[in-house]
Computed example of a mutant assay.
Amino acid sequence: MTATVVTLVLFPTHLVAAALVGRATTLSSRWLVVGAALPDLVDKPLGMVGVVELYHSIGHSAILLIVALPLARHSRVGAAAAVGWGSHLLLDALHVVVNGRPGDALFVGWPVVVPSDPLGIPPGSFVLHYLWTPSFFLEVGVWLVLGAVLLEDRIVGR
């Protein structure tokens, strides 16, 4: 249940961050967003039905670089999806490190390395825990950048 709340809080930020990367590069925003969505679309259902114990497992594993790098080298769509996926992993790892739990970032090594004691608190407690943390303010910053970009587009008429 905690993973559901975490997903609802952080998932949209992954999509926004990917779209902003698309604005700053020549990569397809659509495929960046698809790539950024994939880790949670794979792992959360697997965790909810009990296939894996952690909500950061298969889709959040850096071992998928074995698949992502060849796709990225041979197609612009593959490159955009791989960068979006990588941005999701980077933001999730940054989230736990900035909040003082660097050991939890070991999820990127799944299944070779597994965090010893991932944060496991009830959904309501998680929201209260997350508010006013350093990564909460980073997330607010991402949304402010999006707002500034949208405002600029409206003013410039894009």
Results as ranks from 00 to 15, higher is better:
Thr2Ser: 12
Ala3Trp: 13
Thr4Ile: 15
Val9Tyr: 12
Phe11Met: 03
Pro12Phe: 09
Pro12Tyr: 08
His14Pro: 04
His14Ser: 04
Val16Asn: 04
Leu20Val: 03
Arg23Met: 00
Thr25Asn: 04
Arg30Gln: 04
Arg30Phe: 13
Trp31Ile: 00
Val33Trp: 01
Val33Lys: 02
Leu41Arg: 10
Val42Cys: 09
Asp43Phe: 07
Val49Trp: 14
Gly50Tyr: 07
Val52His: 10
Val52Gln: 12
His56Tyr: 13
Ile63Phe: 15
Ile63Pro: 06
Leu65Met: 15
Ile66Arg: 13
Val67Tyr: 10
Ala68Ile: 11
Arg73Asp: 12
Arg76Gly: 13
Val77Ala: 14
Gly78His: 09
Gly78Ser: 13
Gly78Trp: 08
Ala80Lys: 06
Ala81Cys: 13
Ala81Glu: 01
Ala82Pro: 10
Gly84His: 01
Trp85Val: 07
Trp85Met: 10
Gly86His: 02
Ser87Asp: 01
Ser87Arg: 02
His88Cys: 07
Leu91Tyr: 09
Leu91Met: 15
Leu91Trp: 08
His95Gly: 10
Val96Tyr: 00
Val96Gln: 01
Val97Leu: 03
Val98Ser: 13
Asn99Leu: 06
Asn99Met: 12
Gly100Met: 10
Pro102His: 09
Gly103Cys: 02
Asp104Met: 09
Phe107Ala: 05
Val108Gly: 08
Gly109Ala: 11
Gly109Trp: 08
Pro111Val: 10
Pro115Arg: 03
Pro118His: 08
Pro118Gly: 08
Leu119Ser: 04
Gly120Pro: 00
Gly120His: 13
Gly120Glu: 13
Ile121Cys: 10
Leu131Gln: 03
Pro134Cys: 06
Phe136Asp: 05
Leu138Val: 14
Glu139Cys: 01
Glu139Leu: 10
Gly141Ile: 07
Val142Lys: 04
Val142His: 01
Leu144Pro: 01
Leu146Gln: 03
Leu146Phe: 04
Ala148Pro: 01
Ile155Gln: 10
Gly157Thr: 03
Arg158Phe: 03
